[in-house]
């Protein structure tokens, strides 16, 4: 690890200024990913600006009936919050399915959103990687890609975003509040992340000096309350997803689907909102056959590689299982 300076930020604006003034500077939240990447040599900041002592650690109701979660709130506090558990079960479940008890006590909301891919080539500085070193190539296509993307990837990068939390936030249409060099703004979570396209080095649309200050969760509705997060992984606990789904469902009095929300994890460079499946389902009967048809429609765009082709059916099965549970019907 290379030596670095350290400063404690006392206000978001000051933190942003410190980063703007030093191109080699980075914000430090819980450090669960950044400190590890520094130890691996993937990151080598000249200055760490500690943002954990800012007043960004509250979970509070918004004027419009939603919930505003400070970016410094620890994952464990948010997962245990009774309001989150009751009104947005998929969000609490997504958080609790991630990492370990220790890491959830450290990891912040903002840091969770901005964690980097766990692609083995990205984390190994002895290997080429277009995300880490643009232009060096992507060995994953012909190498270890079992855990990597099947949707929305590019020839330059097939990395997946590792967050469970962000998948649930995508399904909930959460918004991200940002303080940046040009002032404050807000973005839909769906617009925060980008596809790898020609420049996989950028995970998000953020400027390096942009500080996420809060996540705004919309007013709870039936498809938020009747929701769940389901995660498939290689061991029962403490592992990244090989596939996951955040889903919410509400039914009309006649049993047809009035609203459905579906987002997939571990399949793309970003949380994958399954809009095609959602529009195919809305207004139709809540049956396993309909769920299967919609899941197949969503995954029709998949471009799997030999070792991650299983993710197509896995993701379809996750969608069908989650929606069947939420609708109270037997899986097909």
């Amino acid at each position: 690890m290379k030596p670095f300076a350290y400063a404690v930020a006392e206000a978001p604006v000051q933190a942003v200024h410190q980063l703007s003034a030093r191109p080699g500077a980075k914000f430090l939240g819980g450090g669960t990913n950044l400190v590890d990447l520094m130890r691996l040599g993937v990151e080598s900041p000249e200055l760490l600006v500690d943002v954990t002592r800012l007043e960004l650690d509250r979970i509070e109701p918004t004027a419009t009936g939603g919930i505003l979660v400070g970016a410094g709130v620890r994952n464990s506090d948010l997962a245990a919050d009774p309001r989150i558990r009751a009104a947005y079960p998929m969000l609490s479940q997504a958080l609790l399915s991630g990492a370990s008890g220790q890491l959830r006590n450290m990891a912040t909301v903002g840091g969770n959103l901005l964690q980097r891919t766990r692609c083995v080539y990205f984390q190994d500085v002895t290997k080429p990687c277009n995300k880490r070193e643009p232009g060096t190539g992507c060995p994953a296509r012909t190498g270890a890609h079992r855990d990597l993307a099947i949707l929305g990837a590019s020839e330059h990068c097939i990395a997946t975003h590792p967050s469970d939390f962000a998948v649930a936030l995508a399904a909930l249409d959460a918004r991200v509040q940002i303080t940046g060099p040009a002032g404050d703004r807000a973005l839909a979570l769906a617009d925060l992340y980008r596809a790898p396209d020609e420049d996989p080095s950028r995970d998000t649309v953020l400027d390096p000096a942009d500080l996420i200050t809060a996540v705004e969760i919309p007013t709870s509705r039936e498809a938020h309350r009747n929701s769940l997060y389901r995660k498939a992984r290689d061991r029962a606990s403490y592992a990244f997803a090989v596939g996951s789904v955040a889903a919410g469902l509400s039914l009309a009095p006649d049993g047809t689907i009035s609203e459905v929300r579906i987002a997939l994890g571990a399949v793309a460079h970003k949380p994958w909102r399954a809009r095609r499946a959602e529009s195919a389902l809305t207004g139709n009967p809540a049956t396993p056959e309909q769920f299967r048809r919609a899941a197949e429609l969503e995954l029709a765009a998949a471009e799997p590689l030999p070792d991650n082709a299983f993710k197509v059916e896995l993701s379809q099965n996750l969608i069908v299982a989650a929606l069947s549970t939420l609708a109270g019907v037997e899986e097909a």
């Binding site: 350290y6 430090l28 450090g31 669960t32 400190v35 590890d36 130890r39 760490l48 500690d50 954990t52 464990s76 370990s100 008890g101 220790q102 890491l103 006590n105 450290m106």
Partner: peptide, 27 residues
């Protein structure tokens, strides 16, 4: 492991369990 994967470094910080290997002492 020194990478937050094994838990052997677990200590309590303000009563909460954390991985001491991923916490910079200065923080």
């Amino acid at each position: 492991c020194d990478h937050g994967q094994c838990g052997a470094c677990t200590v309590l910080l303000d009563g909460r369990r954390v991985n001491a290997c991923l916490i910079l002492a200065v923080t």
